[in-house]
Simulated scan of single mutants.
Amino acid sequence: MRISLICVGKLKEKYLVQGALEYSKRLGRYCNLDIIELPDEKTPDNASEAMENIIKKKEGERILKFLKEDSFCIALAIDGSMLTFEELADKLNHLGITGSSHISFVIGGSLGLSDEVLKRADYKLSFSKMTFPHQLMRVILLEQIYRAYRINTNQPYHK
């Protein structure tokens, strides 16, 4: 299985970089992992809704260039479906069984994802009704993917 994380913005904090590296290393046993970091657009203070949409559109165009046609796209979106960790494990397992050998997770920038990216998504996933910083979300997502692989291979993982 190939997993791609397409992320807007670079990890800046050392602890986030270390967390992402640790889970990337652990996932190497289970899948081929690619993490694609795309530049984020600077959002001016008090940006209008129109300006925010322009920024999301620019970031979305970058994301779409990296989404392969044969990839099952899971977009992280606040209005997506919320799953338990067992349900996420089942979803990833089901995708692999039914022939989706490439799954792309998309994490947008601080303003979220453009409508074009959300339309391209095969599935929208939400981790909470709360908002998390997109940089922290990368580490959380990597941990949950790792947890899913541990569950699907009947290996213990702290609950």
Rank of each mutant, 00 (worst) to 15 (best):
K10V: 00
K10R: 13
L11D: 05
K12W: 09
K14M: 04
K14Q: 07
Q18N: 11
G19F: 01
A20K: 06
E22V: 03
E22R: 02
Y23S: 11
S24P: 05
S24E: 12
R26K: 15
G28T: 12
G28L: 09
Y30H: 13
N32F: 04
I36C: 13
L38F: 06
D40G: 10
D40V: 05
K42V: 08
K42E: 12
T43P: 03
T43H: 00
P44C: 05
P44N: 02
D45R: 09
N46H: 10
N46E: 14
A47D: 08
S48H: 02
S48R: 01
S48Y: 02
E49G: 10
A50G: 02
A50T: 14
A50Y: 09
M51W: 01
E52G: 14
E52Q: 15
I54F: 04
I54N: 12
I55M: 14
K56C: 14
E59D: 08
E59G: 14
G60W: 05
G60Y: 11
G60C: 08
E61G: 05
E61L: 12
I63C: 12
L64G: 13
L64W: 10
K65S: 12
F66G: 04
F66S: 13
F66E: 15
F66A: 08
L67D: 00
L67V: 15
K68W: 00
D70K: 06
D70M: 00
S71D: 07
F72Y: 15
C73G: 01
I74N: 01
A77N: 11
S81Q: 14
T84N: 04
T84R: 03
F85K: 14
F85R: 15
F85W: 12
E86P: 01
E86K: 13
E87N: 10
E87G: 09
E87Y: 14
L88W: 12
L88Y: 10
L88H: 06
D90S: 12
K91N: 01
K91Y: 03
K91C: 08
L92P: 08
L92H: 04
N93I: 03
H94N: 09
H94E: 11
G96S: 12
G96T: 07
I97T: 13
T98E: 04
G99V: 10
S100G: 00
S100N: 07
S100F: 12
H102Y: 05
S104M: 01
F105S: 08
V106A: 07
V106T: 05
G108V: 03
G108A: 06
G109H: 03
S110T: 14
L111Q: 07
L111I: 08
G112F: 07
G112R: 05
G112V: 12
L113A: 05
S114T: 01
S114V: 02
D115N: 15
D115F: 09
V117R: 07
L118A: 02
L118F: 01
L118M: 03
K119E: 14
R120D: 15
R120G: 09
Y123F: 15
K124N: 06
L125D: 02
S126R: 13
F127T: 09
M130R: 04
M130V: 01
M130C: 02
P133E: 11
H134I: 06
L136W: 05
R138G: 05
V139E: 06
L141K: 10
L141N: 06
L141F: 08
L141W: 10
L142I: 04
Q144H: 09
I145R: 14
I145M: 09
I145L: 11
Y146Q: 09
R147K: 08
A148M: 06
Y149K: 01
I151Y: 13
N152V: 03
N152H: 02
N152G: 03
